[in-house]
């Protein structure tokens, strides 16, 4: 049987390269066109990744424990010291909490509804190539929605950009397409944290007259409504030229993440007539 003219001219490999270039063009110019396909593939792979990642995580912890005995001793000493300081802070926090509570009652302040969290395990990451993203083991069936903030123990790590049924894709704050509205503590200056596809990010859209100093903490400002207010993002590590922010979260050691469930606003009730 004779092959179609195009097929015989370029060969099977050539045809597949042309198809790949076509896909590349579609995904570059219409990124949303293929997002459903991406999430379906991730959802299908999630059970396999779930099974494989669990023993690998245990193996990593085992290797870390066995090889890091000296480091463990040093860390233990540091933690003991830190614990003493934190105990003092804990007592202060208890006092402040009680004081805050009574003052709020006196002032009749309406408090924000507390957040709830969905904890998920990291299944896959693409943090070494083009995009800085994670695939996590919770999806729309668990209450995950597009746009929710994602945090780790140390601070903000990203937001949900795609939610499948049993998995979700998280765009990390270090991805070059990520922009997070932030507030510099101390100066109360609003700015945007921009990812650079690197370990650190930069602070942009900061008014030229504003002064920020090294070591200042940066937290989410809540502007735009995507991220809740006050989530720790990072610390200013350099102010020469670009203002560089070192995120609090240690992206290399992540195993689990917490997805911040948006609280239901009691003022918004389902309408309809």
């Amino acid at each position: 049987m004779a092959l179609p003219p195009l097929f015989s001219a370029v060969g099977a490999t050539g045809l597949l390269v042309i198809m790949s270039v076509g896909l590349l063009a579609v995904s570059t110019f219409h990124p949303q066109a293929l997002s459903g396909l991406r999430m379906n593939a991730a959802d299908a792979a999630a059970p396999v990744l779930n099974v494989v990642s669990a023993p690998l995580q245990k193996a990593a912890i085992f290797v870390r424990d066995v090889t890091g005995l000296a480091a463990l001793q040093a860390e233990n000493a540091r933690l003991l010291e830190e614990n003493t300081k934190l105990r003092e802070w804990y007592q202060t926090a208890l006092l402040l909490e009680a004081e805050n509570k009574s003052l709020r009652e006196l002032m009749n302040v309406k408090l924000d509804t507390p957040h709830t969290y969905i904890t998920a395990r990291i299944l896959s990451d693409s943090t070494n190539t083009f995009a800085k993203s994670l695939l996590v083991s919770a999806g729309s069936a668990d209450g995950v929605q597009k746009g929710q903030a994602v945090i780790a123990a140390d601070g903000l790590i990203g937001r949900v950009v795609e939610a499948g049924e049993h998995s979700a894709r998280v765009l990390l704050i270090t991805d070059m397409n990520s922009r997070v509205p932030v507030l510099v503590e101390g100066s109360r200056q609003h700015a945007i944290f921009a990812g650079q596809n690197d370990k650190k990010g930069t602070l942009v859209h900061l008014p030229p007259e504003s002064k920020v100093s090294r070591g200042a903490r940066v937290v989410t400002s809540g502007v735009g409504g995507v991220f809740p207010v006050g989530l720790p993002v990072g610390v200013i590590s350099d102010t020469e030229g670009e203002i560089v922010i070192e995120p609090f979260a240690n992206f290399n050691r992540l195993m689990h993440v917490r997805i911040v469930n948006k609280p239901e606003d009691p003022n918004l009730r389902p309408g309809g007539f």
Partner: peptide, 21 residues
């Protein structure tokens, strides 16, 4: 290549397939 791009959430779908081919 295609599956790799799909599952890892590669923004440029098809790039790994081109590179591998």
């Amino acid at each position: 290549g295609l599956l790799l791009d799909l599952i890892t959430g590669m923004p440029y779908l098809g790039l790994s397939a081109i590179l591998f081919l």
